[in-house]
Every structure is written in C-alpha cells, then in structure tokens.
C-alpha cells in the first residue's frame, strides 16, 4: 500500500466546535430523513446489518475479561441469534455444514467439546472469523475455570504439604 499521500489526506477530525450541538429542529429533520432512508432498505440489507451487529457482539464478548462479563453467553446463544436473523431452523443449519441435528446439539450442549473444525464451519457459514468462535468458547472455558478453582475440593492440593513433610 502506498504511503505517499497529500497533506490534506490527514485531515479527518469529526466534531462540532465545543459548546455547539444540534437543536431540536435539526434532530427532528435528521430523524425524518433517517426513517425515510430506512423505509427504502431491502430485507437483505436489514439482514446484513443484523448479522454484522451479532458479529460485533460476539467479538465484544470474546474480548471481555471474565470479571467484567455480566451474563455468560454460550456458542449456542450466538448460533441462535444468527439463525433467528436468517429465519433458519437448526436442522437446516446442521445439514448445511454437513453435520446432523443430533450430533451438533451435543456440541451445543457441551456434551462434546467445541473444536477447531466446527469453528471453521461456523465461521464460513456465518461469515465470521473462526477465531472469534474459538475465543467465545475459550472465554467460557476460563469462566468455568474461575468458578471451579475456588471450590473447596481443590484447596487440599499444595506442594508444601508434600515437600515439607
């Protein structure tokens, strides 16, 4: 990519001068124009926007530290969001990624471990990064780990009890 650009290319500041803001009339005019724009959107465009919003929420969730996660969201939850937006049932989805309804549900319910192969299939199908699917799973694994590590049953394990005996 060329890095030779004109000085003007670097002027990108957004913002009204401090103290300025839209008045009520302008806000209303903008809202009217936005609603008019929306009324002309195709169903495909609406779907594309909703899909992009879900991708963003997935990425946000995968990037959030365990301590800051307000509500745990499983891989299954994001699949459900995508399928609802696409108006598609789970069986159709399972078949489309060359799996079966029953088999895929075992992964979704955690009876089988979500893996790289599924992340790649989900990634391609929903136009998302496979990495994001794995990171969601990883985030939930870490959440589970933090819950487990505080359990009393693990407190007895300590090398000092063995070494200093």
């Amino acid at each position: 990519m060329s890095t030779k650009r004109k000085a003007n290319d670097f002027q990108v500041e957004i913002g009204l001068r401090e103290g300025q803001q839209w008045d009520a009339g302008k806000l209303e005019r903008i809202k009217v124009s936005a609603r008019e724009f929306d009324s002309k959107r195709t169903p495909e465009q609406r779907k594309e926007n909703e899909m992009a919003a879900i991708r963003f929420r997935m990425e946000q969730y995968a990037s959030t530290e365990e301590d800051n996660i307000e509500k745990e969201r499983a891989v299954e939850d994001f699949v459900h969001l995508f399928l609802t937006t696409l108006d598609m049932n789970f069986k159709t989805f399972a078949q489309a990624i060359e799996s079966s309804d029953a088999n895929l549900k075992k992964y979704m319910k955690g009876e089988r471990k979500f893996n790289e192969d599924l992340a790649c299939r989900f990634g391609k199908f929903f136009h998302t990064s496979p990495l994001t699917w794995m990171r969601v799973q990883h985030r939930n694994d870490l959440l589970e780990l933090s819950r487990m590590s505080n359990k009393r049953q693990y407190q007895k394990y300590d090398y000092k009890k063995v070494v200093n005996r």
């Binding site: 290319d9 500041e13 300025q20 609603r35 929306d38 992009a52």
Partner: peptide, 30 residues
C-alpha cells in the same frame, strides 16, 4: 449497528466543522 435503535440502526451521523471553509471542504472530501 449495535446501539442504533429501530430505523436509525446502521446510520452513523457526524459533523465536520472547521474554522475555515476551505479546510472544512477538504475534510468533507476525505
């Protein structure tokens, strides 16, 4: 996309306002 409500979803508004009109036009063109 994430936070816009209803019809406003997926429409990002912003203002470009510079002290001199010439500068403002350059930013708008960008």
């Amino acid at each position: 996309l994430d936070k816009g409500v209803g019809p406003y979803n997926g429409q990002l508004f912003f203002d470009v306002s510079e002290q001199y009109e010439e500068d403002e036009q350059k930013v708008r063109n960008n």
